[in-house]
Write a protein that binds this DNA or RNA. Structure first.
Length: 775
DNA sequence: GAGCACTGC
């Protein structure tokens, strides 16, 4: 039977017509004598030189041989024997490879030669924190292995699965994607080895995966795990993955490979700089005047700061050139941050400007960038790095449930990463705008991992779905603050995703399947009951993408006027719905987006998200419905918003547009971008932003009676804190009680309807295909 | 009357 010998099955099943395969299991076969997981470097090198590709049995191309010669020069290649020795003997290994070691492309291939996943119907996975990396590395490795991308070697990222089931055995993927897979297959049975790359970045998904894999490894002795990291925090991972055997702990072994970069000379200031932007500009100009040719990379914290610095550098450079045209060359200054349109981001790859005259002083390019140039984008030709030592970092305050961005000092690891950007093509220099003493004594070793800095409601729902019973005692690499976990559990309980004992409800189980914040998932699931699931699907998608509004500094008035034409006066959420619908109706008009000062990129993203969510809704048979009467439709949409966001409501109190958030009593104002034409008594908000003062952004007018009706447990007057909001709600409930008494008859049915929006699973979900449940 | 570090599903 073919299943009995998968090695042959592989050849027989999937052979493409174009490929002429030679089935040869004899001693001339490239993998002759290979025993899974007992492979030696010598055997692999021989197989790599073989005439036939061992994974397709097709002769190797000349290009393969050319690339192989280049691969042999990578530092990691020369340590192949050592790698196989450690890999064969251990279940979990930690690997340190500096930039340029070749670990990301080579190690997964080495593993493939040892695991022989194609003979067992298994896969080797290598995770990356970013989509582009997963894509581009997979493409490169497919070339190196002489196969077509998407067949033996593929990648899997959100919106794109470039793999062929049954054929793909080496898969690059985003860490988030592997986490998603784990939710439906907690033991990750498809994989023979899982490689977590860039683990030092400590993304939320990688951190959760480490916790999960540590557990799975005990259940699955056949599963191997490699944690790859660029810096020396590998020791932390070694300890984390240590085995408890008998008397002492046995640390996970370390496999270390040197990098291949050029030296970077680091300079510090003598005194602390009071104004780092001014000091940065001064340093850039000093380099331009006095240093050898080579491009400059300056790290600043945000868009406004960057645009401002670019203007100033340009002005001062022009001054210098006018004063001394014979020795100062031309200079171009290029801003770089994520919200910049892709065409403008491409400018960072432009060549530096040419000298004004053939023998004139050479030109120079200055890239002024956010942290995006620290990890996500590499710019060749950078020789000088200017590092003021700050970046915007997310911080989460669980007490008031607010995430905000704060300009903070970077870590030592981050400073080293920045400096390294100067040594990619030749020896470089890094100018740190702080003292060496401050570097040594003030900067933290590592940036705090994301899990310690953000709201975890999403993550907690995922963990519960993964079957983690005790969230507080889960074996985290770094445990989040218990208060952060409590906040998440509290929210999920109010949303009826978890019951009072913290167990997953059937509703929560469906919510976890959506790549959304729990509030949004909840809205989507209850929306058919309000006959507006089409609209809620759109609004949810629009809330899951970056800002769609474009407001160029010199066209603010025009942009605001264009926005006013799209505004729905009672709700910013409905405005988003309107924008999306208009966008779809005007797709034939290429100028429409631009004329209305909207971000085409963000709208396209919303469209993609919408399609993905719609597919998920179909899986769970959540109907797509719209009421024909727009007035009623809009009213219902606003009620659904309450079902998801009842914990984000503010009450108008005092004068001059001040609002107080319900229960935590924060004084806030409507954000100036808000489109409401009145100041309603109750507003629901999507976001609390803390800038110069606290604002609530993306706001909808809601009614007190809806709060009591759709979130009776949250708005339980017995436990509600005293204040104006409570008095207002009591008035509403007394009025309603009066009405109900007048009507008499069916109060119980009403009560039952109320509860399921906030505290118990929605009854209309009973009997749904994927997860039938009772309550 | 103002902003949006960066990822990811």
């Amino acid at each position: 039977m073919a299943e009995e010998n998968p090695y042959l099955a592989h050849y027989n099943n999937k052979a493409s017509k174009k490929e002429k395969r030679v089935v040869d299991a004899g001693e001339n076969a490239p993998l002759f004598g290979f025993l899974p997981r007992k492979v030696k470097g010598e055997q692999v090198r021989k197989a790599m030189e073989h005439e036939l590709n061992p994974f397709t049995n097709v002769p190797h191309t000349p290009q393969y041989r050319k690339i192989l010669e280049a691969r042999k020069k990578l530092p990691v290649y020369s340590q192949m024997d050592e790698f196989y020795k450690i890999f064969s003997k251990n279940q979990i290994i930690v690997m340190v490879g500096e930039t340029g070691s070749g670990k990301t492309t080579q190690i997964p291939q080495f593993v493939a030669y040892s695991d022989l996943p194609h003979t067992k119907g298994k896969l080797v996975a290598c995770t990356q924190p970013r989509r582009v990396a997963a894509m581009s590395v997979a493409k490169r490795v497919a070339e190196e292995m002489d196969v077509e991308l998407g067949r033996q070697v593929g990648y899997s990222i959100r919106f794109e699965d470039m793999t062929e089931p049954g054929t793909t055995f080496l898969k690059y993927m985003t860490d988030g994607m592997l986490l998603r897979e784990a939710m439906n297959d907690p033991d990750l049975t498809r994989y023979s080895t899982i490689i977590l790359d860039e683990a030092h970045e400590r993304t939320l998904a990688t951190d959760i995966l480490m916790g999960l894999l540590k557990k799975v490894a005990q259940k699955r002795p056949d599963l191997k795990i490699i944690v790859m990291s660029a810096t020396l925090d590998a020791v932390k991972f070694q300890k984390y993955f240590s085995l408890h055997r008998g008397e002492g702990d046995q640390q996970a072994p370390l496999f270390k490979v040197p990098g291949r970069t050029h030296p970077v000379e680091v300079f510090y200031t003598q005194e602390p700089e009071p104004d780092y932007v001014e000091a940065a500009i001064r340093t850039v100009l000093m380099i331009h005047r006095a240093e050898e040719p080579g491009d400059i990379l300056l790290f600043l914290t945000g868009e406004e700061e960057i645009e401002d610095a670019c203007r100033k550098i340009k002005l001062e450079a022009d001054d210098l050139i006018n004063q001394d045209p014979d020795s100062v060359g031309p200079l171009v200054c290029i801003p770089l941050y994520s919200s910049l349109p892709p065409a403008q981001q491409q400018r960072i790859f432009d060549a530096p400007p040419a000298p004004r005259t053939p023998d004139g002083p050479p030109g120079r390019k200055v890239v002024v960038s956010t942290n995006i140039a620290e990890t996500s984008l590499t710019i060749d030709g950078i020789v000088y790095v200017v590092d003021p030592g700050f970046s915007k970092q997310k911080v989460y305050n669980p007490r008031v449930r607010v995430e905000s961005l704060l300009v903070s000092p970077i870590s030592k690891a981050s400073a080293q990463q920045r400096a390294g950007r100067a040594g990619r093509t030749r020896p470089g220099k890094c100018f740190r705008l702080y003292t060496e003493k401050d570097f040594m004594s003030e900067l933290e070793e590592q940036t705090h991992p994301e899990i310690l800095r953000c709201n975890l409601s999403n993550t907690v729902l995922e963990l519960v779905k993964l079957g983690i019973k005790d969230l507080v005692r889960f074996d985290y690499v770094d445990a989040p603050a218990p208060e952060t976990l409590m906040r998440a559990l509290e929210l999920l309980n109010y949303l009826a995703a978890l019951d009072d004992d913290g167990n997953m409800t059937p509703l929560g189980s469906i919510m976890a399947e959506f790549p959304l914040d729990p509030q949004l998932a909840k809205m989507l699931i209850v929306s058919p009951e309000f006959k507006c699931s089409n609209e809620i699907l759109t609004i949810t998608s629009m809330l899951s993408v970056p800002n769609i509004w474009v407001r160029p500094p010199n066209q603010r008035r025009e942009a605001d006027e264009a926005k006013a034409l799209l505004t729905v006066p009672e709700s910013d959420h409905l405005t988003l719905l309107n924008v999306f619908n208009q966008y779809m109706q005007n797709k034939y008009d290429k100028n429409w987006v631009w004329q209305h000062y909207l971000s085409g990129r963000a709208l396209q993203q919303a469209e993609n998200v919408r399609m993905q969510l719609q597919r998920n809704m179909e899986r769970f048979e959540i109907d797509l419905i719209s009421l024909p009467d727009e007035k009623k439709l809009f009213l219902n949409v606003r009620q659904v918003l309450v079902c998801g966001f009842f914990m984000q409501v503010a009450h108008k109190e005092g004068e001059k547009g001040a609002y107080t958030t319900v229960k935590d009593n924060q004084i806030v104002r409507l954000h100036p971008s808000c489109g409401l034409d009145t100041q309603p008594e109750w507003v629901l908000f999507n976001e609390f932003v803390l800038t110069k003062q606290p604002y609530i952004r993306t706001v909808t007018d809601v009614r007190g009676e809806w709060l009591l009706e759709y979130a009776p447990l949250y708005f339980d007057m017995k436990t509600f804190p005293d204040g104006e909001a409570k008095r207002a709600l009591l008035r509403v409930s007394n009025k309603k009680a009066g009405k109900d008494r007048g009507k008499s008859g069916e109060p119980d049915r009403k009560k039952q309807k109320k509860d399921h929006y906030s505290a118990s699973p929605a009854p209309q979900l009973e009997g749904k295909k994927e997860k039938p449940y009772k309550y």
